[in-house]
Protein backbone atom coordinates (compact mmCIF):
# COMPACT_ATOMS: atom_id res chain seq x y z
CA UNK A 1 0.00 0.00 0.00
CA UNK A 2 1.13 3.52 -0.75
CA UNK A 3 0.90 6.07 2.03
CA UNK A 4 1.32 9.77 1.35
CA UNK A 5 3.09 11.51 4.23
CA UNK A 6 2.72 15.28 4.44
CA UNK A 7 4.05 17.71 6.99
CA UNK A 8 4.12 21.42 7.80
CA UNK A 9 1.22 22.51 5.59
CA UNK A 10 1.13 25.95 7.25
CA UNK A 11 -2.19 27.05 5.76
CA UNK A 12 -0.85 26.84 2.21
CA UNK A 13 -3.86 25.78 0.15
CA UNK A 14 -2.15 25.95 -3.26
CA UNK A 15 0.69 23.64 -2.22
CA UNK A 16 -1.65 21.22 -0.45
CA UNK A 17 -3.96 20.99 -3.47
CA UNK A 18 -1.03 20.26 -5.76
CA UNK A 19 0.36 17.60 -3.43
CA UNK A 20 -2.99 15.86 -2.97
CA UNK A 21 -3.63 15.72 -6.70
CA UNK A 22 -0.17 14.28 -7.30
CA UNK A 23 -0.44 11.68 -4.53
CA UNK A 24 -3.88 10.57 -5.68
CA UNK A 25 -2.61 10.16 -9.26
CA UNK A 26 0.20 7.93 -7.96
CA UNK A 27 -2.27 5.74 -6.10
CA UNK A 28 -1.88 6.89 -2.51
CA UNK A 29 -4.51 5.07 -0.45
CA UNK A 30 -3.88 6.59 2.93
CA UNK A 31 -2.68 9.97 4.15
CA UNK A 32 -0.58 10.92 7.12
CA UNK A 33 -0.14 14.53 8.27
CA UNK A 34 2.70 15.23 10.65
CA UNK A 35 1.41 18.46 12.15
CA UNK A 36 1.74 22.23 11.74
CA UNK A 37 -1.42 22.49 9.67
CA UNK A 38 -1.67 26.21 10.37
CA UNK A 39 0.52 29.27 10.95
CA UNK A 40 2.28 31.51 8.40
CA UNK A 41 -0.33 31.10 5.64
CA UNK A 42 -3.68 32.78 4.97
CA UNK A 43 -5.91 29.76 4.24
CA UNK A 44 -6.26 27.90 7.56
CA UNK A 45 -9.93 26.96 7.23
CA UNK A 46 -9.84 25.68 3.61
CA UNK A 47 -6.65 23.72 4.37
CA UNK A 48 -8.19 22.01 7.38
CA UNK A 49 -11.37 21.29 5.45
CA UNK A 50 -9.30 19.56 2.80
CA UNK A 51 -7.12 17.68 5.31
CA UNK A 52 -10.04 16.39 7.38
CA UNK A 53 -11.56 14.86 4.24
CA UNK A 54 -8.41 12.88 3.29
CA UNK A 55 -8.96 9.10 3.18
CA UNK A 56 -7.58 7.08 6.09
CA UNK A 57 -6.09 10.16 7.71
CA UNK A 58 -3.56 9.75 10.52
CA UNK A 59 -2.48 13.05 12.07
CA UNK A 60 -0.23 14.28 14.86
CA UNK A 61 0.08 17.67 16.48
CA UNK A 62 2.71 20.28 15.66
CA UNK A 63 4.00 23.22 17.68
CA UNK A 64 1.95 25.77 15.70
CA UNK A 65 -1.22 23.73 16.23
CA UNK A 66 -0.51 23.57 19.93
CA UNK A 67 0.01 27.33 20.10
CA UNK A 68 -3.69 27.77 19.34
CA UNK A 69 -4.50 26.39 22.77
CA UNK A 70 -1.41 27.04 24.85
CA UNK A 71 0.89 30.02 25.18
CA UNK A 72 3.98 29.61 22.94
CA UNK A 73 7.48 29.60 24.37
CA UNK A 74 9.16 32.91 24.93
CA UNK A 75 11.44 32.41 21.92
CA UNK A 76 8.52 32.59 19.44
CA UNK A 77 8.54 35.69 17.22
CA UNK A 78 5.73 38.24 17.70
CA UNK A 79 4.81 37.90 14.02
CA UNK A 80 4.22 34.19 14.51
CA UNK A 81 2.09 34.81 17.63
CA UNK A 82 0.05 37.31 15.65
CA UNK A 83 -0.48 34.78 12.83
CA UNK A 84 -1.67 32.22 15.39
CA UNK A 85 -4.15 34.67 16.90
CA UNK A 86 -5.33 35.62 13.41
CA UNK A 87 -5.78 31.92 12.57
CA UNK A 88 -7.72 31.18 15.78
CA UNK A 89 -10.48 33.58 14.72
CA UNK A 90 -10.87 31.93 11.34
CA UNK A 91 -11.28 28.29 12.36
CA UNK A 92 -14.66 26.69 13.01
CA UNK A 93 -15.30 25.00 16.38
CA UNK A 94 -15.15 21.61 14.63
CA UNK A 95 -11.75 22.40 13.19
CA UNK A 96 -10.43 23.70 16.51
CA UNK A 97 -11.71 20.55 18.16
CA UNK A 98 -9.93 18.41 15.60
CA UNK A 99 -6.62 20.15 16.22
CA UNK A 100 -7.03 20.09 20.00
CA UNK A 101 -7.62 16.34 19.95
CA UNK A 102 -4.48 15.43 18.00
CA UNK A 103 -1.95 13.13 19.68
CA UNK A 104 1.76 13.93 19.85
CA UNK A 105 2.81 10.48 18.64
CA UNK A 106 1.19 7.71 16.65
CA UNK A 107 2.62 4.18 16.55
CA UNK A 108 1.44 2.12 13.61
CA UNK A 109 3.07 -1.30 13.42
CA UNK A 110 6.68 -0.83 12.31
CA UNK A 111 6.26 2.93 11.99
CA UNK A 112 6.10 5.91 14.36
CA UNK A 113 4.76 9.31 13.32
CA UNK A 114 5.80 12.46 15.15
CA UNK A 115 6.06 16.15 14.35
CA UNK A 116 9.52 16.98 15.73
CA UNK A 117 10.92 13.84 17.40
CA UNK A 118 9.73 10.69 19.10
CA UNK A 119 11.96 11.63 22.03
CA UNK A 120 10.22 14.27 24.18
CA UNK A 121 7.82 15.15 21.38
CA UNK A 122 6.54 18.25 23.17
CA UNK A 123 10.03 19.77 23.41
CA UNK A 124 9.90 20.53 19.65
CA UNK A 125 13.57 19.82 19.12
CA UNK A 126 14.91 20.39 15.59
CA UNK A 127 16.59 17.15 14.41
CA UNK A 128 19.19 18.50 12.02
CA UNK A 129 22.32 16.47 12.75
CA UNK A 130 22.93 12.71 12.77
CA UNK A 131 24.07 12.84 16.42
CA UNK A 132 20.55 13.89 17.48
CA UNK A 133 18.99 10.82 15.87
CA UNK A 134 19.76 7.93 18.32
CA UNK A 135 17.57 9.43 21.07
CA UNK A 136 14.65 9.60 18.66
CA UNK A 137 15.26 6.03 17.43
CA UNK A 138 15.37 4.65 20.97
CA UNK A 139 12.23 6.50 22.08
CA UNK A 140 10.29 5.44 18.99
CA UNK A 141 11.05 1.74 19.42
CA UNK A 142 10.09 1.06 15.80
CA UNK A 143 12.44 0.61 12.82
CA UNK A 144 11.00 3.70 11.14
CA UNK A 145 10.05 7.16 12.32
CA UNK A 146 8.61 9.84 10.09
CA UNK A 147 9.04 13.44 11.19
CA UNK A 148 8.72 16.99 9.88
CA UNK A 149 9.29 20.28 11.74
CA UNK A 150 12.69 21.17 10.18
CA UNK A 151 11.22 21.74 6.69
CA UNK A 152 14.26 20.04 5.11
CA UNK A 153 13.85 16.58 3.53
CA UNK A 154 16.37 14.04 4.85
CA UNK A 155 16.83 10.33 5.39
CA UNK A 156 18.76 9.51 8.56
CA UNK A 157 19.72 5.86 8.85
CA UNK A 158 21.62 3.67 11.23
CA UNK A 159 24.22 1.23 9.95
CA UNK A 160 24.78 -2.20 11.44
CA UNK A 161 27.68 -0.84 13.51
CA UNK A 162 25.43 1.84 15.01
CA UNK A 163 26.69 4.89 13.15
CA UNK A 164 24.02 7.32 11.95
CA UNK A 165 24.40 8.78 8.47
CA UNK A 166 22.23 11.06 6.39
CA UNK A 167 21.12 11.03 2.78
CA UNK A 168 19.87 14.04 0.82
CA UNK A 169 17.03 12.49 -1.16
CA UNK A 170 16.60 13.26 -4.84
CA UNK A 171 13.29 14.24 -6.34
CA UNK A 172 11.35 11.25 -7.60
CA UNK A 173 14.07 8.66 -6.92
CA UNK A 174 12.95 5.78 -4.71
CA UNK A 175 15.10 5.20 -1.63
CA UNK A 176 15.10 1.47 -0.78
CA UNK A 177 14.83 0.70 2.93
CA UNK A 178 16.70 -2.22 4.39
CA UNK A 179 14.71 -4.57 6.61
CA UNK A 180 17.47 -4.72 9.18
CA UNK A 181 18.25 -0.99 9.52
CA UNK A 182 16.52 1.82 11.43
CA UNK A 183 15.44 5.10 9.89
CA UNK A 184 14.32 8.59 10.84
CA UNK A 185 12.84 10.20 7.77
CA UNK A 186 12.12 13.90 7.57
CA UNK A 187 9.45 14.34 4.91
CA UNK A 188 10.18 18.03 4.31
CA UNK A 189 7.44 20.64 4.16
CA UNK A 190 4.40 20.99 1.93
CA UNK A 191 3.59 24.60 2.71
CA UNK A 192 6.94 26.27 3.40
CA UNK A 193 10.03 24.39 2.16
CA UNK A 194 13.30 25.71 3.60
CA UNK A 195 15.99 23.77 1.77
CA UNK A 196 16.46 26.34 -0.97
CA UNK A 197 13.99 24.69 -3.31
CA UNK A 198 10.62 26.46 -3.43
CA UNK A 199 8.73 23.35 -4.58
CA UNK A 200 6.34 21.63 -2.16
CA UNK A 201 7.74 18.40 -0.73
CA UNK A 202 6.07 15.20 0.45
CA UNK A 203 6.85 11.50 0.71
CA UNK A 204 5.17 8.43 -0.70
CA UNK A 205 5.89 5.41 1.48
CA UNK A 206 5.35 2.02 -0.17
CA UNK A 207 5.13 -0.51 2.64
CA UNK A 208 5.16 -3.53 0.32
CA UNK A 209 8.18 -2.63 -1.82
CA UNK A 210 9.60 -1.09 1.36
CA UNK A 211 10.80 2.16 -0.12
CA UNK A 212 10.16 5.87 0.20
CA UNK A 213 10.05 8.38 -2.64
CA UNK A 214 10.37 12.12 -2.10
CA UNK A 215 8.41 14.25 -4.55
CA UNK A 216 8.99 17.94 -5.25
CA UNK A 217 6.12 19.81 -6.86
CA UNK A 218 6.12 23.34 -8.22
CA UNK A 219 2.96 25.16 -7.15
CA UNK A 220 1.55 28.66 -7.55
CA UNK A 221 3.34 30.36 -4.65
CA UNK A 222 2.64 33.78 -6.17
CA UNK A 223 -1.04 33.41 -5.29
CA UNK A 224 -0.19 32.08 -1.82
CA UNK A 225 2.11 35.04 -1.21
CA UNK A 226 -0.49 37.53 -2.39
CA UNK A 227 -3.08 36.07 -0.01
CA UNK A 228 -0.64 36.36 2.89
CA UNK A 229 0.02 40.03 2.11
CA UNK A 230 -3.69 40.75 1.61
CA UNK A 231 -4.47 39.20 4.97
CA UNK A 232 -2.07 41.61 6.63
CA UNK A 233 0.27 38.88 7.88
CA UNK A 234 4.03 39.41 7.93
CA UNK A 235 5.30 40.09 4.38
CA UNK A 236 8.32 37.92 5.23
CA UNK A 237 6.06 34.85 5.34
CA UNK A 238 5.08 35.67 1.75
CA UNK A 239 8.58 36.46 0.55
CA UNK A 240 10.29 33.34 1.85
CA UNK A 241 8.02 31.08 -0.21
CA UNK A 242 9.78 32.22 -3.39
CA UNK A 243 13.24 31.46 -2.02
CA UNK A 244 12.32 28.22 -0.30
CA UNK A 245 14.11 29.52 2.82
Amino acid sequence: MRIAILSDLHSNLEALTRVCEHAAALGAERYVCLGDFIGYGADPAPVLERVMALPGLVAVRGNHDEALFREMGREAFPEIRRAIAWTRERLSPVQLNFLDGLPLLVHDGRVTYAHASAHQPDAWEYLRQPDQIPACLEAAGTPMTFIGHVHVPRVFYETAAGAVRELVPQDGMAVPLSVSARYVINVGSVGQPRDGNNAACYVLYDNVAHEVTFHRLAYDYVTTARKIRDAGLSPFFAERLAYGR
Binding site: Y157, T159, A161, A163, L167, P169, V175, P176, L177, S178
Partner: peptide, 11 residues
Amino acid sequence: AALPDHIDAAF
Protein backbone atom coordinates in the same frame (compact mmCIF):
# COMPACT_ATOMS: atom_id res chain seq x y z
CA ALA B 1 25.14 8.81 -4.08
CA ALA B 2 21.35 8.48 -4.06
CA LEU B 3 21.13 5.44 -1.79
CA PRO B 4 21.61 5.01 1.95
CA ASP B 5 25.17 3.79 2.46
CA HIS B 6 25.17 0.87 4.88
CA ILE B 7 28.83 -0.04 4.45
CA ASP B 8 30.64 0.38 7.72
CA ALA B 9 34.31 1.01 7.80
CA ALA B 10 33.97 0.43 11.53
CA PHE B 11 33.57 -3.31 11.04
